[in-house]
C-alpha cells in the first residue's frame, strides 16, 4: 500500500521557488533518506507533507487521503521530529508524551501513562520521566521528541534533520533509536546529513537539489557509483 504519494508539488516563498515539480511515492514500511545541499528544499518538503507549509500546487495523498482537502485526519497519520526538538519546556518528560494523546485522542490516563512509560523505556529514558526537558542533553531531548511523536501512534514518521543540532558524540544514540524504528518497519522519511546512516538504514535515497528530486535510488547506487555530476560533487564535499 502506498503511504505517501506526492504529485507535482510546487512551493514558493515570496520570490523563491523552493519545491518545483516534486513527485514520489513511499510504500508501507519503507525508509527514505532525503539528502542534498542546504536550501535544496528537503525540510520544506517534509513540512509540506505534514501541513506546516501550504503547497502552491500539486497533490499530497496520505494513505489514500488527499491531505490538503482532508486536513487533520490525514496529517494525524504522520508524526514529526524537528531539528530543534521543540519539547514543551513547562512539562516533564512524561507529560510531554501524554499531553497530546490525552487532549486529541482522549485516551484513558492510566493506560496512556503505561503506554508512555513503555515508549520512554524504548528510547532508554524511563529514568528521566519526571524531569523537565531543560535537564536533558540534546540527544536525550531528541529521543524524548521521538517518543512523543510515537505516542500519537503515527503510521509514518518524518524526521527533519534530527541530529543536526546535536554535539557529535550525541548523534549515535539518536540514530540508534531511529534505526530501531526502521527495523520495526515504520514508514519513515528522514532528512539527514548523516551519510553513513542513510546508507545503512534506508531502502531508498532521494537526492534533492534546487527544489527537485534529482535522483531516487538505492543507497548503493547513489553512494557507490553516483551518476550525476551534482551528486558526486556533493558527496565529495560531505564525506
Amino acid at each position: 500500500m502506498k503511504m505517501i504519494e506526492a504529485n507535482k508539488l510546487f512551493k514558493k516563498f515570496a520570490d523563491l521557488q523552493v519545491l518545483r515539480d516534486v513527485t514520489f511515492a513511499v510504500e508501507q514500511g519503507e525508509v527514505i533518506s532525503v539528502i542534498g545541499p542546504s536550501g535544496s528544499g528537503k525540510s520544506t518538503l517534509l513540512r509540506c507533507l505534514i501541513g506546516l507549509e501550504k503547497i502552491n500546487d500539486g497533490k499530497i495523498i496520505i494513505e489514500g487521503l488527499d491531505a490538503v482537502k482532508t486536513g487533520k485526519k490525514a496529517y494525524r497519520k504522520m508524526g514529526m521530529v524537528f531539528q530543534g526538538f521543540n519539547l514543551f519546556p513547562h512539562k516533564t518528560v512524561l507529560e510531554n508524551l501524554m499531553v497530546a494523546p490525552m487532549l486529541v485522542n482522549k485516551n484513558n490516563k492510566n493506560e496512556l501513562r503505561k503506554k508512555s512509560e513503555k515508549l520512554l523505556s524504548k528510547v532508554g529514558l524511563i529514568d528521566k520521566k519526571d524531569v523537565y526537558p531543560s535537564k536533558l542533553s540534546g540527544g536525550q531531548k531528541q529521543r524524548v521528541a521521538i517518543a512523543r511523536a510515537l505516542a500519537m501512534e503515527p503510521d509514518i514518521m518524518l524526521f527533519d534533520e534530527p541530529t543536526s543540532s546535536l554535539d557529535p558524540e550525541l548523534v549515535g544514540e539518536v540514530l540508534a533509536v531511529i534505526k530501531k524504528l526502521a527495523e520495526e518497519k515504520i514508514t519513515m522519511m528522514v532528512v539527514t546529513h548523516e551519510m553513513g546512516f542513510a546508507r545503512e538504514v534506508s531502502d531508498r535515497v532521494f537526492f534533492m537539489d534546487e527544489g527537485k528530486i534529482l535522483t531516487d535510488s538505492t543507497p548503493d547506487e547513489i553512494f557507490l557509483n553516483p551518476e550525476e555530476e551534482r551528486i558526486k560533487l556533493f558527496l565529495n564535499k560531505i564525506l
Partner: peptide, 16 residues
C-alpha cells in the same frame, strides 16, 4: 514558533 509547530503536528487544535 517551534512550540506551535510541535503542537500542530501532534494534532492539537488552536485552543488546546
Amino acid at each position: 514558533k517551534g512550540q506551535y509547530e510541535a503542537a500542530q503536528v501532534l494534532g492539537m487544535n488552536y485552543r488546546q
